[in-house]
Every structure is written in structure tokens, then in C-alpha cells.
Amino acid sequence: MLKKFLDTILFTEIGQGLKLTLRHMFMKKVTSQYPKEKLVLADGYRGFIAHRRYDDGVERCVGCDLCEAICPAKAIRVVSDIHPEIPDRRYAKEYTLDFTRCIFCGFCVVACPVNALSMTKEFAHSSFTRNGLIYSKEQMLALGDRAGADSDAYLKVRNMWEAENSGKDEGHYHFPPISLGG
């Protein structure tokens, strides 16, 4: 009876209730001040998909259409053709990725035989129009250029870097020289 009376006048229940809150006042802060502060994302983070280049700046994509074939959301469209400058090389004349449809499953990156695609840590792309989220190849290359080492890190952590470094000729699509004329 007395205990109940004391509890009532001393607000012990509130104290109990605030115990967790009060304890956290002295712990390290978890909330980050997005967008002023940015989180450190894991290397395997599946953000926006980017196109990659070789070290000499040549785009990697050979327009093989395998990403288009595997895409479960049918977000990718590839139109391949002969490269206008590098003779006898296949490339993607048009490459569009509709990020409104993309489900960020990463299948396309797995399918890519030349590691031309990778997922970046960028995730905050918004647009006022739907068309603004349909990315062309140039936009995706720019994404890749921005992502830099992040795109490599994704491939490494997802075990797709082997083809890059294996030294076997399967990984690199070098194209045989052509003999014209004669």
C-alpha cells in the first residue's frame, strides 16, 4: 500500500520508462545527419548500375545483349552494331537502362562477360520525370567514371574480379586484326 503510494508521488514508473532513453544519452550516436553526413556503404552495396571502361578509356561494353537477356524486369535495351572508330569491334550503339523498372538484383553484372557493368554506391537519383530515370550509355559511363574504385570493389567482393586478372584470354575480348582488300 505504502509502495504504491510512493510510486505514485515519486513517478518511479516514468523513471523506469526513461531508463533506456537516459542510458542512450551517454552512448555513441547512431543517427547520421543525411544528407549532410553520408554513411559508409559496404562494397557489395547494390546501388545504381554503371558502365565501366578499360584503363585506356575505351568503353568495355561489347553489346553482347546478355544483360538484356537476363534482366528479370526487362529494364535493359541494347542495340549493338559495329564500332564506328575501332574497326571490326562490336559495341552497344544504344544502351538504355530504365531505373524505374530496375529491381537492382545485379543479374546483369553477373551476366556481363567483360565486366563492363558494375553496381555503384550511388542510390540517390531522383527525377521529376520518368524519362529522367531512363539512363543512356553516356550517363551510365559517367556514373562509372564517378564511381571509380567503388565499381571495382563491387566486382571484387562479389567474386567477379577473377576474369579480370586470370590472365587467360577468355576474360579479355581482344579482336583479331582484319585483312581488308587484296
Binding site: 571490326d88 583479331p176 586484326p177 582484319i178 585483312s179 582488300g181
Partner: peptide
């Protein structure tokens, strides 16, 4: 070795 002959584009 993999063959690496040029393609015949004549």
C-alpha cells in the same frame, strides 16, 4: 593456344 587468325573480310 587459342587461334588468333585475322578474319577474312574481303
Amino acid at each position: 593456344h587459342r587461334n588468333d587468325e585475322p578474319e577474312d573480310m574481303k
